[in-house]
Nucleic acid binder design. Structure first.
Lengths: 205, 205
DNA sequence: TGCCCCATATATCAACCCGATATAGGATGG
DNA sequence: CCATCCTATATCGGGTTGATATATGGGGCA
């Protein structure tokens, strides 16, 4: 399930240029899958090579010439096959959470700034989802259940993240928090309990 | 904020081998940041080159020889500097949600299977978080507020995802929902209706 | 009118990451 | 006694990221 497949998927809605496809990705998958030109153009080239899409160049009336891509019947079947066989993953790569892990090494001001920044970011993405739901989507092609499910998913997850940060950011400020004071005791008890056999590096126990 | 920085961070807890560092990543960031050997070993090599860490090889009593890495004072300062200057991102790459977007092209059985699979996956990760919170963490070094915040974040977000899937999967099943039944007709009507001016590709109006 | 910036549009490149694979000794266990 | 797993290091190809180059037409504004 790489960008090639995404392009095939985009083209199931009709012919489009690489630029269009990027726009489609942003509006539809902006919060859960991003792909840049550096992936899209090579992908389209390979798909053309493989006969899954065809390309025709149109002299652009407004702006540069457009290369319109079209999904072939072979391409459509290939896409459906991928949809049925791929086992889909869901990966998160969060430098933000890494930073939060090392909160004890951060000045309080910086910590606050990062948290505020992330909250703003969440807010922005939530608004984007709503924007594309009502306003941007003048065309109805993108208003099927799948679209709504994906947007709802984003809303649910990002809403939960926002809520969590708001209610738990207090606990990050240096020691103080009751859980933190308890943990020291707990820890000591536990490290005594473990039989000290192996215990090098981080792999505790 | 790349794997090099993550390695420096891991080494703030004490000397470790590449293998240890990977284990640390898995236990601590497993649900929000993954790094494989293909990233870790080159990173450690570069860090050694740059003098941010030092390496000493110990003949392994149990197993192959271990190359223990140690954070230098320069390395520690470099890491703290990165923590303060990086603006942290939080990215999601979900083939699962892409698949859900194209639910209308999937057989019902497949759709159900994918949803069940994802729910199991969520369950598994939630259990992993709990496991590392109580069981695995015999050593107390990893029981500071940052650790708890990150785990709590994961629990909140993944819990929300699970809840959303459970309550909204019904709506994905083929047509049924009012918008879906209309969609086929709509598409045909629209491609005729659009004034051919703008409205090419996906970028709607 | 002239100017600058923005949107459209295609394309490439270095750096980096991911997943798979190779290697190998020791422990575990049926 | 052999299969399998765990520890441990290392490399490679293919793919992604993010930045950059190039080009043109339209809109705003002084």
């Amino acid at each position: 399930m790489d960008v090639k497949d995404l392009c095939l998927g985009a083209l199931t809605y009709g012919d489009a240029t690489g630029y269009d496809i990027k726009k489609f990705f942003e509006s539809t998958f902006g919060h859960c899958f991003q792909a840049g030109y550096g992936s899209i153009y090579p992908a389209l080239a390979e798909l053309t090579e493989a006969g899954l899409v065809t390309a025709r160049t149109e002299p652009g009336q407004a702006g540069p010439s457009r290369k319109l891509y079209h999904l072939t019947e072979t391409g459509r079947r290939a896409f459906l096959a991928r949809l049925e066989t791929t086992e889909p993953q869901h990966k998160i790569k969060s430098e933000f959470l890494v930073l939060m892990h090392f909160a004890h090494l951060l000045p309080t001001a910086r910590l606050d700034a990062v948290l505020d920044q992330h909250l703003r970011e969440l807010e922005r993405k939530l608004e984007m989802i709503d924007a594309y739901e009502c306003g941007g989507a003048g065309d109805g092609r993108l208003q099927h259940p799948g679209t709504r499910f994906v947007r709802g998913f984003g809303r649910a997850v990002m809403g939960a993240a926002r809520e969590y940060i708001r209610t738990h950011r207090r606990g990050l400020g240096q020691p103080g928090s009751e859980a933190a004071t308890r943990s020291t005791k707990q820890v000591r008890a536990r490290s005594k309990a473990s039989p000290a056999s192996k215990n090098r590096g981080y792999t505790n126990a």
